[in-house]
Design a protein around this nucleic acid. Structure first.
Length: 312
RNA sequence: GGGUCGGUGGUAGAGCGGUCAAUUACACGACGCUGUAAACGUCGCGCCUUUACGGCUACGGGGGUUCGAAUCCCUCCCGGCCCA
């Protein structure tokens, strides 16, 4: 039988560890859904799981791209779906685990993005215009998309969104299509790790300190030495952004640490903005609750005659 | 003790007679997201309410000038600097 378990939660909530435990218990493999861990060399700063921590559980979609080039959701989606299929073929249970909501939903909701690859040159040209101008252009060429953006909190002023919309219109000669969603052909169980704000804040600080001890600053210094520009590092956000600023002496060590604690906290809230409005997510507090839910969900599947699944 | 500069919203820091509940940044909060998503963007942020070009309380304290003061004057308190 086939099924997919998705594990979500804000950063530092303990997804990786929980996933490994569940995978060991239920015979699973893990598909990472993290927009930074896909890059080679982004290890400590991205919180990539170590070989030892994997405890023999196969992990997929880690280290699949060079950080020098931008890896996109669409590439991610393609590879993740393939990884999931392969795992299922081998009779194992796939766990989609990660903190990049857009990546999670690209897979779990089967978002079918328009087949228009990014055009750097075009983007650079459009970048010259103000958001207002871009919006006017879009309004003329694709009023429907313009209206959609206008209705979603601030997007009418988001150049990145406007440019992408125009890019699609220019390349296809047609309006931006409504995003088709292709439901996955197998049942999906979404688990969310629940933590109080206090708890999460503490975990963020603790984890950040651990990363410093583990040599995160050195890692980022090294990445720059081996050819990753400061600009690119800053673009990668959070740890990479602020440590890069520190290494360039744009900010002090203290500023860097304070900034990081705050920014990571804000990031976790942004992640939660996605998850908290998804009614499918079953929020769990610990391993036990997760196990129970998994077992239950399997039982339901047995009853419905969907097939058999081995629980170790 | 004398002189001098300054005390503004959570912080920094504008404003220097009306159009100021007070520019801006940060912090904080809420939210959005169709190939950069740890990215990118929007909104709110004194209090109250029938949410209104509404009311109230506010720019260290007190007093004054003025039709009107965060903005001018006096005084007190506090802080920086200089002289003693």
């Amino acid at each position: 039988m086939k099924e997919l378990v998705v594990i979500v939660g804000p950063t530092a909530s303990g997804k990786s560890e929980l996933a490994v435990k569940l995978a060991l218990r239920f015979g699973g493999e893990i598909v990472s859904a993290d927009s930074r861990q896909v890059y080679k060399g982004l290890d400590i700063g991205a919180g990539k799981i170590t070989k030892k921590e994997m405890r023999g559980v196969p992990h997929h979609l880690l280290d699949v791209a060079s950080p020098k080039r931008i890896f996109t959701v669409v590439q991610y989606r393609r590879r993740a779906l393939k990884a999931i299929k392969d795992i299922q073929k081998r009779g194992k249970l796939p766990f989609l685990v990660g903190g990049s909501p857009f990546y999670i939903y690209a897979v779990a909701n089967g978002l079918l993005f328009p087949e228009v690859p990014p055009d750097k040159e075009l983007r650079r040209q459009l970048e010259q215009y103000s958001a207002e101008k871009l919006y006017e252009k879009l309004q003329k060429l694709d009023p429907a998309r313009a209206a959609t953006l206008r209705q979603s909190s601030g997007q009418a002023k988001n150049k990145r969104r406007l440019i992408r919309a125009l890019e699609i219109v220019f390349k296809t000669g047609k309006p931006v299509p409504e995003l088709p969603q292709k439901p996955l052909p197998y049942p999906v169980l979404l688990l969310g790790i629940q933590r109080t704000q206090d708890e999460l804040k503490k975990r963020i600080v603790k984890r950040l300190q651990r990363r410093f001890r583990e040599g995160m600053v050195e890692e980022i210094q090294q990445l720059n030495k081996s050819g990753l520009s400061w600009k690119r590092l800053e673009e990668l956000g959070l740890e990479y952004r602020y440590v890069a600023q520190y290494l360039q002496q744009k900010i002090s060590r203290k500023e860097m640490e304070e900034k990081l604690e705050r920014e990571i906290w804000k990031f976790s809230k942004r992640q939660m903005n996605w998850f908290k409005k998804d009614p499918r997510i079953r929020w769990i507090k610990d391993l036990k609750e997760a196990e129970n839910l998994l077992r239950l969900s399997f039982e339901e599947l047995f009853e419905s005659g969907a097939g058999k699944f081995r629980i170790r």
